[in-house]
Nucleic acid binder design. Structure first.
Lengths: 215, 215
DNA sequence: GGATGTGAACAATTTCACAGCC
DNA sequence: GGCTGTGAAATTGTTCACATCC
């Protein structure tokens, strides 16, 4: 398939074709009228715009289960990321290889960042250590941080932080799950007492309201 | 602090206070004019609306590094999630405790789901196994799935899937990182040749364009 | 003929600003 | 006086529909 139309791409992605064309148009005019988009060329242009044609060295700080999982994660290399170093505060970890990369001690953090020209850091430490690690990363020159610790990090302007909170993802699912259950119940209700629905949902049935409720 | 104003909450969250008030108003009128919101009561109402007052049993399928990290993750319990079971396809894992929970074999997946009344499943398997695991979870009654495998899952209507792609998070950071670098370069450029900027950025300098570029 | 690229219409979201209440 | 709750205005995002070009 050398060429693809906005219609086909939109169907595959589950979006409107006009939106897709408009979005692409912000990157430039890479399509051909009457024909579509050259697949290879489009892939290259999008890759370049997204920064996938560059090599990004990253460091992972905190080599527990999650840090190790990240170090072993296969998807990074193909997207242009290279794990330049693994760093942990536990001296017993130092030198031990994880995913084929020897773990280094936190003491050397600044040197490691500078030697490898790292601008992206991943924090997979416990919550208590995260801010401190963050401060050191930033001071050493890191300007983008991916934070897995359940803490809000304070950073100076110009530094980007993205937070992945694993339990928030579950919460979002649980929220929808609850709504599904609620709708089923409501649908069942409707047969009996259609007009009685809204109030309990908005204010909570009295039986549900705990002692914290104010007068 | 028994009470809090929308202004204070908005500042803490980094959003506009009107937006925050409007959002809260969709849950009901839980504030007091001239005073603010009763903290405890607000926490309870939001918790209830988000489903945090319920207990959600979850199963984790695929107990590699990531699965183990999730099983050990402390944040779940406090948000109402309980790891009901760990499941892995490797017979050698069966019975081994991870985070204090014995790993069970995939053969028993359906029974485990049903016995525990599980409606939320977490997939932390390799990409190749994910769809198959997903199908079995759904057939057994799971209606929400958190997917860490780098695959798009096909599910029937009524089943929610959330995907956490670790390298996409890094890509987003890399994208902004690239823009920062680009802006610095552009700012430096401006002093020399302000009018010459746009074309290279849109079409790419010739030196950058690889063999895939069509005639 | 067939598909892009885009101004114009439409829809959704966010912010303003203030009436209403404590 | 101070702060919520909410219509109305402003902004942002999406879709339509068609002129334009291969």
């Amino acid at each position: 398939m050398p060429t693809v139309s906005s219609e086909e791409l939109a169907a595959a992605a589950g979006v409107n074709s006009a939106k897709l064309r408009k979005d692409f148009s912000y990157l430039g005019s890479y399509g051909t009228r009457g024909v579509g988009y050259d697949v290879e060329y489009l892939v290259y242009q999008i890759s370049r715009e997204l920064g996938l044609t560059q090599d990004w060295p990253v460091v992972i700080v905190g080599i527990g289960n999650l840090g190790a999982a990240l170090a072993n994660y296969g998807g990074f290399a193909s997207r242009g990321f290279r794990v330049a170093a693994l760093i942990d505060a536990d001296p017993a970890m130092a030198g031990k290889p994880v995913a084929g990369i020897p773990v280094q001690h936190t003491d050397d953090l600044e040197r490691i960042i500078q030697d490898n020209g790292v601008s992206i850091g991943v924090i997979a430490t416990p919550a208590g250590a995260a801010q401190q690690v963050c401060d050191r990363l930033v001071a050493a020159g890191v300007t983008s941080i991916l934070n897995f610790a359940p803490t809000v990090l304070n950073v100076p302007d110009g530094v980007d932080v993205r937070k992945v909170d694993l339990s928030i993802e579950l919460q979002i699912l649980a929220f929808h799950e609850q709504r599904k259950a609620g709708e089923e119940a409501a649908a069942a209700d409707t047969a009996v007492a259609p007009a009685a629905r809204r109030q309990p949902a908005d204010k909570g049935p009295d039986g549900d309201v705990p002692a914290v409720m104010p007068a």
